[in-house]
Simulated assay, not measured.
Amino acid sequence: MTTTLSLHPPSARLRLSEQSFQDGSARRIDGAWWPRSYDLTAELPGLLARLPHRWGQISSVLVNGAMWSLSGDGTRIEDQGVHLRRTDLPRAEHTICLLAPGYGRWDLLVVPPAATEAEAERLMETATADAPLAGRTA
């Protein structure tokens, strides 16, 4: 089962896998996010506001440095400091990693902002399908 959290109806901008809510599930991708731009400081507050409370307070975010526009190394969201980090690893090119001390780590597929609604829906559905990762096709 897939849980969809809507940022701006009618199109869903965040979709989380139901498996990401279960303890002990080993997934490489916990959901998919379709931001409106690659300006992380502008997009991050909306994303964090829609995450499940059980994920805890996100304190650190890791993104691909070449893909995202960042101003500084942190931002304040509802009086909470969030450390922004960059990586140049090719395997992290289309993901965002969210870390919450004492709660865990969650990796979201980032759907390109320029994607059409149909493309975004297909990518988000594929990323959050409950089928085992080994059985998925790209």
Rank of each mutant, 00 (worst) to 15 (best):
R91G: 10
P52T: 05
G81F: 11
S69D: 04
L48M: 08
Q80L: 14
I96Q: 03
G102L: 06
L109E: 04
W68K: 00
S59D: 11
P112L: 01
R54E: 09
W55S: 14
G46E: 14
Q80A: 13
G72R: 00
I77H: 02
R105T: 11
I58P: 07
L62V: 13
D79A: 11
V111L: 04
S60R: 15
T95F: 08
N64W: 07
G102K: 04
Q80N: 13
R85E: 03
P52Y: 06
A92S: 12
V61E: 00
E117G: 08
W68Y: 04
R85C: 04
Q80I: 11
G72C: 03
I58S: 08
L47T: 05
R76M: 14
C97Y: 09
A100Q: 08
A120Q: 07
R76I: 13
S69E: 06
A49G: 10
V61Q: 00
D107K: 10
R105K: 12
A120V: 03
E93V: 14
A115I: 08
E117V: 06
Q57I: 15
P90T: 03
D79C: 07
A92K: 09
S59E: 15
S69G: 07
L44Y: 01
A66T: 13
I96L: 11
I58V: 14
Y103H: 13
S71D: 01
I58G: 04
R105P: 05
I58T: 11
E117L: 07
L98E: 05
V61G: 00
T116P: 06
H53T: 15
R105M: 13
I77Y: 01
T87N: 03
S59C: 14
T116K: 04
A114W: 10
V61T: 01
S71V: 01
D107C: 13
R85L: 05
L62R: 09
A100G: 05
L89H: 09
D107T: 15
P112Y: 00
L98I: 10
S71I: 00
A118T: 08
P112Q: 02
L99Q: 14
M67I: 14
A120C: 07
A114P: 09
I96Y: 01
G46S: 15
C97W: 09
L47S: 08
G74H: 07
I58Q: 06
P101E: 06
L108Y: 02
R85I: 03
P90K: 04
G72M: 02
W106V: 11
G65Y: 05
A49Q: 14
R76N: 10
A115R: 03
E78P: 12
L99S: 12
G46T: 08
A100F: 07
D107P: 09
A66G: 15
E119N: 10
L109H: 05
R85D: 02
P113G: 01
G81R: 05
T116S: 11
R54I: 13
R85P: 03
I58K: 04
R50P: 14
L48K: 02
D73C: 10
G72H: 01
E78A: 15
V82I: 11
